[in-house]
C-alpha cells in the first residue's frame, strides 16, 4: 500500500484517540488515550522516512506519559461536565466549517507532497557531508547550519525548568502558608 493510505489510517486513529481523551471521565484512562496521539505521530514520522524525529517523539511521549501519570493519577480531581448551549455549539460548528472550506482553497496553492520549494535543502543534501563532516544530515543541519536555533531551544528548556522549579519549590509555599 502507498504511504498516503497508511498516513490517513494513522491520522484517523489519532483523531479518534484525542476525541476519546476529551470524553472519558476517568483521568487515568484519559491520560493513556493522550498517548495514542503521540505514538501515532511517531509512527507517521517513521512512514515519512524521518527516524530521528520518530525516535525523539517516541521517547519523549513515554516520559510525558510517566510524568502525567505520576503527577495526576492519585490526585482527586473533580471533573465537571460542560453543559453545552445550543447557540455556542452552532457558532463553533459554523466557524469550523468556514475554516475547513477556506483551507481547501488555501491548500490548492501548496506545493505537492515531496517537492519542496525551498532551494536550500538541495544544497544541504549535496554539501552537508563535505562541509560539516557529519554522516547524519539531520544532525549536520540542526547542529551546524541551524545551531542558533538549537541554542535557543536549549535556552527555552532551561527557562522552562527554572519556571517549574520556582513555582513548585518548597520555600515559597511554606512562607505563604505561615
Amino acid at each position: 500500500m502507498p504511504v498516503d493510505v497508511w498516513l490517513y489510517f494513522i491520522l484517523s486513529i489519532m483523531i479518534i484517540g484525542s476525541i476519546a481523551c476529551l470524553e472519558i471521565k476517568n483521568i487515568l484512562s484519559s491520560i493513556i488515550t493522550i498517548g495514542i496521539v503521540g505514538l501515532g505521530l511517531s509512527i507517521a514520522f517513521l512512514f515519512l522516512g524521518a527516524p530521528d524525529l520518530a525516535l525523539v517523539q517516541f521517547v519523549f511521549e513515554i516520559l510525558c506519559m510517566i510524568i502525567l501519570i505520576r503527577a495526576f493519577s492519585k490526585r482527586s480531581l473533580k471533573i465537571t461536565a460542560l453543559k453545552r448551549d445550543i447557540p455556542e455549539t452552532v457558532i463553533a460548528i459554523v466557524i469550523l466549517v468556514s475554516i475547513f472550506v477556506l483551507s481547501i482553497f488555501a491548500f490548492k496553492d501548496l506545493p505537492s507532497f515531496g517537492q519542496p520549494i525551498v532551494r536550500v535543502a538541495e544544497k544541504y543534501l549535496t554539501q552537508a557531508g563535505v562541509e560539516t563532516g557529519a554522516q547524519n544530515i539531520v544532525t549536520s543541519v540542526i547542529l551546524n547550519y541551524r545551531i542558533y536555533d538549537t541554542l535557543g531551544e536549549l535556552t527555552v528548556l532551561f527557562t522552562a525548568i527554572l519556571g517549574a522549579l520556582t513555582v513548585l519549590r518548597k520555600i515559597g509555599r511554606k512562607k505563604r502558608n505561615a
Partner: peptide
C-alpha cells in the same frame, strides 16, 4: 552524527 538520534534523544533516554 552518524546514525539517527542525537543529543536530545540520548538525553531523554538517560532521563528515562
Amino acid at each position: 552524527h552518524l546514525t539517527p538520534g542525537g543529543g536530545f534523544a540520548g538525553g531523554v533516554i538517560i532521563a528515562l
